[in-house]
Amino acid sequence: MPDMTPDPLAGRPPEFAVRAPGAPRHQRVVDDEKVRQSELAISLVLRVGVSLAVALALAGLGLTFARHPGYLRLSGSSYHPLTQLGSHFPHTIGQLGHALAIGDGRGLIGLGLLVLIATPVLRVAVAVLTFAYEKDPPMTIVTLFVLAVLVGSFFVGGG
């Protein structure tokens, strides 16, 4: 299939750069170039995060099946012992380190999942920087607040 995605900037009307009607009170000076760079930076963080997570999860799945050839057989074994509440898999940092050290595929998967979980948090952190780069104090403060609540919630939930 040919890549039909048009350049998102192509149809942009010329007045985009000038936020005319209902202009904000603090008169945000919009630098199109900077806004675009910020969007691409946030998109890149998400892309790198998910790619890394998928690569680790795939490698971990591959390793798990390679070390347990029985899992690959089309009969004779059941998935059930692997997916019960009591089944053994790493879920603390210490267990994760141990699983990685002994080459357990589930350790790699766990690492990939942590990367996946960290991606949205990192995305908020990058947004704090990009709004500061765009010289937009109100939005910088807003994003900083979100980041603080998010980081705080890890302690609330984990504690």
């Binding site: 997570a53 998928v54 999860a57 795939l58 971990g60 799945l61 798990t64 998935y79 692997l82 997916t83 089944s87 898999f89 790493p90 879920h91 595929g105 589930r106 998967i109 766990g110 990939g112 999942l113 996946l116």
Partner: peptide, 11 residues
């Protein structure tokens, strides 16, 4: 979060 369930879901 069981890795054998979560890995195929995530991918």
């Amino acid at each position: 979060i069981d890795p054998i369930i979560a890995a195929p879901v995530a991918i």
